[in-house]
């Protein structure tokens, strides 16, 4: 049997016969039986799990753990999946890590371009300078851009295998939170979670902030607390998660990013009666 990667997930030649390439254009090796149709990414390889984010009255809090898994193997344990773009936008990446690196480089070159024009000339005073220096790219603009990139790639049948949360402040300095995924789908809500978090953490976050109005009343401390609690629940239940994580708070004062947080006050009491896994002997 052919064990080479190109045969992965394909019908076996010895049972079903070889692939019929006759419909392919000449340039793609049509009629030559050994040719296969062009394929792009079929599955993510090294992956990050959930990203969580929650709006509060003056900003947004976002978190993701520091694990990159290779299948079920916990391959890299110091991978930072929150990327600050500027003073008012952070992107959280779930899904394929190499695609995350590609997007990170894309954002890097976008940031270089954004800073070609030095705006300080308009400033009349140092106070004024802070205003004029405000980055032009808001979290909302960034989300629009990234959503376009994701959509373009999926339309080319060559998706970037990620689920993104873009958060920060919009043009009017109001809290902003939205997602874009490998299909180019966009969505926005007071609280958001990708991956397993969408099932495990989202219901908990919705309890804290059921609607936009509720986020107006939510303090930064309460929001951070809720996110940390959700990270803990995810660690309890998601087998591709870990207890070290990054968390960022974005508000008027800028981005506050911590990249080596540890889960505190874990309680595995709920797992008291779960038996039969790992090194457990009793």
């Amino acid at each position: 049997m052919n064990h080479f990667p190109e045969a992965w997930g394909r019908p076996r030649d010895d049972i079903y016969g070889s692939y019929n390439a006759s419909y392919l254009p000449q340039s793609r090796g049509g009629l030559q039986s050994h040719h296969q149709p062009t394929t792009h990414t079929q599955q993510p390889i090294v992956t990050g799990t959930s990203v969580l984010a929650l709006k509060f009255s003056t900003g947004v809090v976002i978190a993701a753990d520091n694990l990159a898994s290779y299948g079920s193997l916990a391959r890299f344990t110091d991978v930072h999946r929150l990327k600050p773009f500027n003073k008012r936008a952070v992107v959280g990446f779930g899904g394929d890590v190499s695609d995350m690196q590609y997007l990170d480089r894309l954002l890097n070159s976008l940031d270089v371009e954004e800073n070609y024009t030095s705006p300080t000339g308009d400033a009349k005073s140092d106070d004024d300078r802070a205003l004029v220096d405000a980055p032009l790219m808001s979290a909302k603009n960034l989300h629009t851009y990234l959503a376009k990139v994701m959509y373009k790639r999926r339309t080319d049948f060559n998706p970037l295998w990620n689920a993104l949360l873009v958060c920060g402040l919009d043009e009017k300095d109001q809290p902003f939170l939205a997602s874009a995924d490998l299909l180019g789908t966009t969505f926005s809500a007071p609280s958001m979670a990708t991956g397993f978090g969408a099932h495990l953490a989202q219901p908990l976050l919705r309890r804290v902030a059921p609607d936009e109005a509720a986020t107006q009343e939510l303090s930064k401390e309460k929001a951070v607390e809720a996110i940390k609690e959700c990270m803990k629940v995810l660690f309890y239940r998601d087998a591709r998660s870990m207890n070290e994580y990054s968390v960022a708070v974005i508000d008027q004062s800028g981005v506050e990013l911590k990249e080596d947080e540890k889960l505190e006050n874990q309680s595995w009491a709920f797992a008291d009666r779960i038996k039969g896994y790992g090194t457990q002997t009793v």
């Binding site: 024009t117 032009l136 790219m137 808001s138 909302k140 603009n141 629009t144 851009y145 376009k148 043009e171």
Partner: peptide, 12 residues
């Protein structure tokens, strides 16, 4: 407007 959802800068 399409790619970034923002009006272009006049300087730009």
């Amino acid at each position: 407007r399409l790619t970034y959802g923002r009006p272009i800068l006049l300087s730009d």
